[in-house]
Nucleic acid binder design. Sequence first.
DNA 1: ATTCGTTATATTTTTAAAAATATAATGATA
DNA 2: TATCATTATATTTTTAAAAATATAACGAAT
Lengths: 114, 114
Amino acid sequence: MMESTFTINGRIWIEINGEKVLGHGRIELLERINTSGSIRQAAIQMKMSYKQAWDLIKHMNTHFKSPVVISHRGGKGGGNAIVTENGLILIQEFHQLHNKLKEFLKAYKLEMPS
Amino acid sequence: MMESTFTINGRIWIEINGEKVLGHGRIELLERINTSGSIRQAAIQMKMSYKQAWDLIKHMNTHFKSPVVISHRGGKGGGNAIVTENGLILIQEFHQLHNKLKEFLKAYKLEMPS
DNA sequence: ATTCGTTATATTTTTAAAAATATAATGATA
DNA sequence: TATCATTATATTTTTAAAAATATAACGAAT
């Protein structure tokens, strides 16, 4: 008699006033902006439209007290974007939180019928 | 200086071979089928279409070794649906798991910049 | 002043998801 | 056997999301 293999999976995110402002996708976006210095490049890497990426950034920038990304247009390379100190801290905190969740999920063994 | 109030929220679900088979929505559906004895009534209560509910049940029934819902058509009342013993156990286990997650989320205090 | 690639934004088009609709099958009950 | 509300399923229609397209603004570099 074979057992079905159950896997528990989970996600966490951060809300402000009940509205989601930070999750896995946005964190990855911030990281890619941080390494590429470009919203467009980050969007391409994540296979999302520039608009989608820009909307997410705009949403974060308006919901956190201080912005997470600062962008400039024109000039060398056409423009650029950088993740603020604040944004970098958010990334780190989120990873810590996610690691704790992974520990939690790993620790909890599920007893379920097939 | 006012602090933004961050809330950590999260969800867990169960996968079989990487495919989601059980989450909050399906659990609620099972519970409502259990109390109403009807797929249709459960669907109405959750403001979803009968088709949507039925697809979810079909998916669960085919992915778990033994079915979670057994339905009958015709007869008194036009038909009915019952949650199996197996399904009831799944509901309980899922609630236990979710409660543990809530404890986890409550315990973890977030230190984030505004 | 022209070029360049990017940011910023609006508009249009396409696609996918959801909802709505329709219909057959069912079997206890009257 | 005619009725009933439901299950089970297919098909159509509607809606919402996503993608694509277009365009202006920008400023360093040439």
